[in-house]
Design a protein around this nucleic acid. Structure first.
Lengths: 337, 337
DNA sequence: CAACCGGATGCAAACGATTGCAATCGATCG
DNA sequence: CGATCGATTGCAATCGTTTGCATCCGGTTG
């Protein structure tokens, strides 16, 4: 049963007693063919279980119906949801998604891009970790490129408005009386980490808040491992690169009897589902990730239609306040671990 | 810059002063061509930035270098990690992955399968939610199909050994003195939920444990929403369909001052990363998800090489005991919420 | 009645790559 | 010195589909 012979156009033509051109036109809904013939051909095709060979089709038509996408990490819900939105939009437009995961590695991402471009008519780079030089190379490829969460010239750009995001976070914290805040950073290759730092610094200055920064990463264990350093710092509130890091940090703090938020407030970016189920539930910045994917598709279709790139789309986030942030207090004691 | 003209084989041939056949052979490493010509052609191709048109290549070769995969939900880390393993293995074999998400919907999955098969030379159905009839249809398609976490005839099968899994869980709980256990189920369309139930019942019987079952789902909120029902039950331990549900349930229990594990033990399947960061950390069954993907690829290559399907691959899980399970106690009180 | 017309259909040429086979060349051998 | 041989290279067919153009047909018109 499995691995049967493929039915081709010519088989349908023979069975229907017509030529391949007629069959092709009938199936593709050309108005050059008489209705009876169309009906007959359709019937025969259905009977024989004909399915067009998409490879031959795409080859002949020359225009690939596939969009290549890269993400740093498939297991991060942020990226999965962007993909969800993008996939839905692309599918509605008759396109398919070829997904590649770079594993947070710029070199691997470049390899991936070169591979994907051979199969796709367009490229979407989600939170690209490429170096500047790598990005140049990608943009020189003979297909349109959209970047999600990375601004770049001569490409489509869809990003979260980190300026607004950082302002929301810091205003929330200063409103609670915090004057000293620690940022636990993300991967050095991440453009959005850079943006978070830049906008946090700038906003901190304007709000007269002292901002400290340490290195972190993108996953739960990065947050957990940052625990001791966080505890030693003199900040009364912590902002983490994303919720995974935030949840990891919370876990360490609870393991070490630090009362959140009484002793230390924690807040983060992204608001992925587990943020709500963390202990204590994590204050975070909600963003419409699926919409990022949708907008990327919109930019792409505009470009594929021959227009110039529209301007960058910026998505404003929304602060979801939960129990992990509270009024600033004097730190109970300086501990060492 | 963007959207430049494609360089074709004939352009390289012209520039190099040879024929297309020579160029093709030179680039593909045929030993029929003299080394100097190979070097020259390679140089010219590089200079011109030639990249083979994969559509033409695949078309001509007839064998698609793409594998279609369906998953119910991209945001579930379980599936992402299976994809990771599969993608890595496929890539190493020179294949690409076309990924489709069904959104836990059997009808959508069927549409997806029919779409993917047109673009792929093989199909991997990950935790397929297809109905029996739908699955029959998929298996009748002219490509080999591998099912992950679903057993079926005339297809490759890779699955987690739920019999062993359920035994590990229940033995752990009975070892702690639990005699009445509640299972919070998953989606009705899930084969693996059925397996979990079946093996739990069977093992419960042999261990003389009373097993109750309620309906649940696949996501955190399903666990959270099950909270009241769980609390009303007379069980001293709960097993949830997966960690997302488990974490959601834990969150509800903590919100409602139920002491875990003193009053109620909670354990689960899958051991995704957040299980370790939950409060309390969740006892769960670790499985090698990436390996599931790898094995699926192995089955596929065997089949593509013309062999029969090898037998099913079963992966034994391992119990990771954390703080969410503890000795059974008399329930403090029956509460109503 | 011949010329014409337009709708319906078939013929054949593409698309870009691979590959069996024939052609070419210089060198070797009898 | 001509035949032969092996190593290279080019010619041309091919994959399945789409599509411009020619063809064919019956019916209408002058």
């Amino acid at each position: 049963m499995s691995v049967a012979e493929r039915v081709r156009l010519i088989d349908v033509a023979r069975e229907a007693g017509t030529s391949v051109s007629t069959v092709s036109r009938a199936l593709n809904g050309s108005d050059l063919i008489s209705p009876e013939v169309v009906a007959h051909v359709r019937a025969v095709a259905g009977e024989l279980g004909y399915r067009a060979d998409r490879r031959a089709q795409e080859f002949k038509l020359g225009r690939p119906l596939t969009v290549g996408v890269t993400v740093p990490d498939l297991t991060n819900p942020f990226f999965s949801e962007v993909l969800k939105g993008l996939a839905a939009a692309a599918r509605a437009g008759g396109y398919r998604l070829l997904i590649g995961e770079s594993g947070e590695d710029p070199a691997e991402e470049l390899r991936l891009v070169e591979e994907l471009v051979d199969h796709s008519g367009a490229l979407v780079l989600c939170s690209s970790r490429l170096t500047r030089a790598g990005l140049e190379k990608a943009l020189a490829l003979p297909v349109p490129v959209v970047c999600i969460n990375r601004t770049v010239k001569n490409a489509g750009v869809v990003a979260i408005d980190y300026r607004a995001a950082s302002r929301l976070l810091l205003e929330h914290l200063t409103g609670l009386g915090h004057r000293r805040v620690l940022y636990v950073g993300g991967p050095a290759t991440s453009w959005s980490d850079g943006e978070r730092r830049r906008t946090l610094r700038r906003t901190a200055r304007s709000l007269d808040v002292t901002l400290d920064e340490i290195e972190g990463g993108w996953a739960g264990h990065h947050g957990y491992d940052a625990g001791p350093t966080v505890l030693r710092s003199r900040a009364t509130a912590v902002i983490t690169f994303n919720d995974l890091v935030g949840v990891g940090l919370l876990s360490w703090l609870l393991d070490n009897d630090v009362d959140v938020p009484a002793e230390l407030s924690v807040a983060s970016y992204d608001d992925i589902p587990i943020a709500a189920y963390a202990r204590p539930p994590l204050t975070s910045l909600r963003n419409e990730r699926a919409k990022l994917g949708e907008l990327a598709w919109r930019q792409l279709t505009a470009r594929l239609a021959g227009d110039d790139w529209p301007g960058p789309d910026l998505l404003a986030p929304e602060l979801v306040v939960r129990a992990s942030t509270g009024p600033a207090r004097r730190r109970a004691r300086i501990r060492t671990t």
